[in-house]
Amino acid sequence: MTLLPLIIIMLLTLGSAAVAMMLRNLIHSALLLILSWAGLAAFYLWAGAEFVAFAQVLVYVGAVSMVVLFAVLLTRRSRADLEVPPPALKRIFLAVFPSSLIAGLLIGAVMGAFPRDNSGPVPELTVKDVGFLLMGPHTASLLTVGVLLTVALLGAIVIASPEKPEDKP
């Protein structure tokens, strides 16, 4: 009974991600990618992590999606440009090799982070507890992430700012 929603969510997430890879139209791919992010949020919701689920929607579906869509629109000149040519063997290799490396790294890190034996009682975490945990024992990592994001933002501004004075009004 509780597995049925999981299967639906899984099919939705993986299916939309797979179709996003197949489509030739970049905007359609981006929108399907956003759907698969929303599917991830649904998975978090199913797993009982309300806070993470809504944060996922707010950050990925709300903000990162805009970055992706704007990037696609600003780097393509015309609508015909949005169609990507079918993949060559070299490109497939270039895509699969680094992504499988990253996947291996991530899976290794995730497997190493959790104890092997997780048969203990499931902790009841409310949003409040998550907040106190973030502000208490995990303050340092939170601050580090904040500084990292700020640096990334400043870098983006530096890259985007015009070098020549001709842009001035």
Binding site: E50, F54, A55, V57, V61, G62, T126, V127, K128
Partner: peptide
């Protein structure tokens, strides 16, 4: 619990 977050999401 996270109603406000849900609203904005």
């Amino acid at each position: 619990d996270a109603a406000l977050l849900y609203f904005f999401a």
